[in-house]
Nucleic acid binder design. Structure first.
Lengths: 150, 150
DNA sequence: TCACATTACGTGAAAATTCACGTAAATAAG
DNA sequence: CTTATTTACGTGAATTTTCACGTAATGTGA
């Protein structure tokens, strides 16, 4: 047995999945910011609009959870969107601590435009990627998300 | 041919790759923030420390590019790290517009601790994921990154 | 019922990020 | 060489996010 020299083990970011995940997220939001500029929507509002796509009344904390942001940040984004006339809020009849957020007519209209923009960005980013690969990606990431401790 | 009702096409975030990518990134940084708290490093500093792992002298703009953040943000993070004694800066001898960032002894020490923490988080998050799957993920994401317009 | 903990949210203050702009150095054009 | 033009960075001001804390409503246990 010979001594190995005390060199550091090799390290390459490019082999590090979280490097690419963070990178793609950063560039994606940057791309969306540019693509959404013509219709005057910023990225936080876009994320909330998409969250409101599936359910009509969503609580502020559900929005915070879906977007992985702090509750107080979600409160502020909803306040801005309310000022812009995109959403309205009301206390939940079931639990009056809860603030339910829903789209206005203006918000409905923008939601569709925003979705179309997001779909074109997605199509370009995943050009040449098969449906099977996409699904594998989704389930792999869902698994990783589940194993990450909050 | 019969008319279809004017219902909206179904939409599910869970089928949307960027939903999971953004989600994993958010939770990853949240997890790292908690894991790094004992050694007093925040996520932006962690990202810069890892960027300095491969090369000893890195420009502020290269840091901004690697972390997908604005140049002025990178400037400010480096200023904070300098104040904390983790890095030092100097004008590049080749191009004096460039500010080269490098680790101090203190930064060197923390870099290794930080890497160990990041590796344990990675190991947990990718438990049960094969090397082949990880590499496929990396190359898929690298491709997506390349196709996203800045 | 009564005390106590928890949850959901809002808000002032602090911190981080970004924008807009300016400077200095390097490069390109003439 | 001279004059744009571009690039890299820093900085004050504005915006956004987050923290720390408070309040009100709900849940829980004795």
């Amino acid at each position: 047995m010979t001594d190995v020299p005390p060199t550091e083990p090799p390290f390459h970011r490019a082999k590090w999945p979280f490097y690419w995940i963070a990178r793609v997220t950063g560039r994606y939001f940057q791309t969306m910011e540019t693509a959404l500029e013509p219709i005057g929507i910023d990225v936080p509002s876009y994320r909330v609009l998409m969250t409101l796509y599936e359910d009509h009344h969503v609580s502020v904390s559900a929005i915070a959870d879906a977007c992985v942001i702090k509750l107080s940040t979600a409160t502020r984004i909803v306040q801005r969107m309310t000022a812009d006339g995109l959403v309205v809020t009301r206390p939940s009849p079931r639990d009056r601590r809860v603030t339910e957020v829903s789209l206005t007519a203006k918000g409905e209209t923008l939601r569709h435009q925003v979705k179309a923009i997001a779909e074109s960005v997605l199509a370009q980013a995943f050009e040449g990627v098969s449906d099977a690969e996409r699904e594998a990606l989704n389930s792999l990431l869902a698994g990783v998300f589940g194993r990450l401790k909050g």
